[in-house]
Nucleic acid binder design. Structure first.
Length: 289
DNA sequence: CGACTTTGACCAGCGC
DNA sequence: GCGCTGGTCAAAGTCG
């Protein structure tokens, strides 16, 4: 599918409310406070390009984030607004979480009785109480014509589902690298079809494939390359590595716009989280007061 | 021929 | 308990 996005500008806007203090550090800098896109870009080591990143959502247990240019990141004043931040701890919230875990179990379920019967999956025994650990997740919105943005990694689509209340389907991708647990979900905002909502889940345990067409990996500054899975915070890593078109199909125009402190698009300014939730339901967790 | 996409089915969780 | 929904599987199809 489309992997090229020839997008337009890049603007980041955010909404930073409900940020859990713990996340503030990063999110703050990243999304809200620091807002200068350039700064942001710099902070993450990517350069703007084809699409617009409207908001970010992170679902991280820990705000490990700052390591990536943190201090630098903070301090500007652009309006970068995170869609929200999710603290996994407090509320198991994120429905997705379950999803991940539950789903898999599904096939754990047993076929026992007539076992082997189901044509499709076979089931493996799994413990009932056993829960799957939730992978760190990170979501962001981009303005893009293409659904699947090139981000340097190779993905394999493993499913697509219609989204309730939305004419646009949601696609599920998995990193094709062996043993890499990273998944991502891509869907379009039904409110603004030009907006693509991408959710990454998990952490790559490998580097960006060097063989990627266009050798994206090669173009990446080392700061963008995935650090070791162990040593680095997941979030930043995700962000850095996966910010799609940011480093991929950058165009002068885009870069320019990016640095120009783009104006937030009206339709992207979400007055309240309810709205946001409509757009990206699974990414918004209620925050306990 | 391998890698990837499409698509219908399956399953678990959740709300009613 | 039932139905809905989201997430995943895997066979079949497509593509380079």
């Amino acid at each position: 599918m489309a992997s090229n996005s020839s997008m337009s500008d890049t603007s980041v806007l955010q909404n930073s409310q409900m940020l859990d203090p713990s996340y503030m550090s990063f999110t703050n800098c990243l999304l809200q406070g620091s807002s200068d896109q350039t700064t942001l870009a710099r902070a993450f080591g990517f350069s703007p390009s084809s699409s617009e990143v409207f908001s970010l959502v992170q679902d991280e247990p820990k705000p490990v984030v700052l390591e990536v240019g943190d201090h630098q990141a903070c301090g500007s004043e652009t309006p970068v607004t995170p869609m929200s931040s999710i603290s996994s701890s407090s509320t198991e919230a994120v429905g997705d979480e379950d999803s991940n875990k539950g789903k898999k179990d599904k096939h754990l379920k047993e076929t026992t009785e007539e076992d082997g019967h189901s044509p499709k999956k076979e089931n493996k025994p799994k413990k009932k109480g056993e829960k799957k650990e939730r992978q760190p997740r990170f979501a962001f919105m981009t303005k893009s014509e293409v659904d699947h943005l090139e981000d340097g990694y190779r993905w394999r689509k493993y499913g697509q589902k219609a989204v309730k209340n939305s004419p646009y389907p949601r696609s599920y991708y998995r990193c094709t690298t062996q043993k890499c647990p990273v998944k991502k979900r891509v869907e379009r905002s039904f409110q603004d079809p030009s907006i693509v909502i991408t959710t990454y889940e998990g952490t790559h345990n490998h580097h960006v494939p060097a063989t990627l067409r266009g050798s994206v990996a090669g173009m990446l500054p080392h700061s963008m390359l995935p650090p070791t899975p162990l040593g680095m915070p997941n979030f930043p890593q995700e962000l850095i590595v996966q910010m799609p078109q940011f480093y991929n199909h950058g165009s002068a125009t885009n870069s320019f716009m990016y640095q120009q402190n783009l104006t937030p698009l009206p339709q992207l300014q979400f007055p309240d989280y309810g709205l946001l939730q409509d757009i990206v339901p699974s990414m918004f967790l209620k925050q306990e007061p």
